[in-house]
């Protein structure tokens, strides 16, 4: 194929140009980068959860601190108040959380048959758990694990309800990146960072929440105290 050979010649060209530009090099890929920045947070578990909540709130997301037992009731209340009738559920979601939701609601399961884009687009909300939370930046991290599902599930519905347990919250970003090591290098699953709802400041720098992703982000934090 002509295209293939052209492409490989571009490849050779680029590699050759780089080799020429670098000349006699002394550097190598083994050179160590000095990482003098913080790698581990000094916050206590309590401080982490407090900071996480504060920072998520600042993004104009809603947060609620609940105990494991309170969650089904709170979820029911949220669905009533927000008028959620069609709720998307990823595989592996904790069924106990749904125990108080009215039978009249439609539950859209993504298995055995994956939901279509249209179904997702016409749903009201999605309920997921998450892989991690980062206190310092108020970030929720998804890695397509059980209870989170495919990326599109948290993208098309208008409201994202996310449940996080206190012990899933780390202090700072380097701690989260380390915990994602396996996801990235072994399973290769996609990773999504979510910090508040979708937003834009493109018009006169006025912040508007909710452009293309979910317009509302509601976070339940399960903590024991």
């Amino acid at each position: 194929m002509v295209e293939g050979s052209e492409m490989s010649s571009s490849r050779d060209k680029i590699l050759q140009r780089i080799d020429q530009a670098l000349g006699n090099r002394t550097d190598s890929t083994d050179d160590v980068v000095e990482r003098r920045y913080h790698q581990i947070s000094e916050l206590t578990a309590q401080e982490k959860v407090n900071l996480f909540q504060e920072r998520v709130d600042e993004y104009k997301a809603a947060t609620e601190r609940v105990s494991e037992g309170e969650l089904p009731g709170k979820l029911k209340k949220l669905c009533e108040e927000a008028g959620i009738k069609k709720l998307v559920l990823p595989p592996g979601i904790d069924e106990n959380w749904l125990s108080e939701l009215p039978k009249s609601m439609t539950f859209l399961h993504d298995e055995p048959q994956p939901l279509s884009k249209t179904q997702l687009n016409e749903s009201d909300a999605v309920l997921t758990n998450c892989f991690l939370g980062v206190a310092q930046t108020g970030t929720i991290i998804l890695n397509a694990g059980p209870g989170q599902g495919r990326r599109v599930l948290t993208l098309l519905p208008d409201i994202h309800i996310c449940v996080i347990r206190q012990d899933q919250i780390v202090g700072i970003l380097p701690e989260a990146i380390r915990k994602l090591d396996q996801t990235v290098s072994e399973s290769g699953a996609p990773v999504t960072f979510i910090s508040g709802p979708s937003a834009t400041s493109d018009i006169e720098l006025d912040r508007v929440e909710g452009v293309h992703g979910p317009r509302k982000l509601h976070v339940f934090i399960i903590s024991e105290s």
Partner: peptide, 12 residues
């Protein structure tokens, strides 16, 4: 911002 709203990382 401390973190922008969305970051996507995909591997192949």
């Amino acid at each position: 911002e401390r973190m922008n709203p969305y970051n996507t990382f995909w591997t192949g």
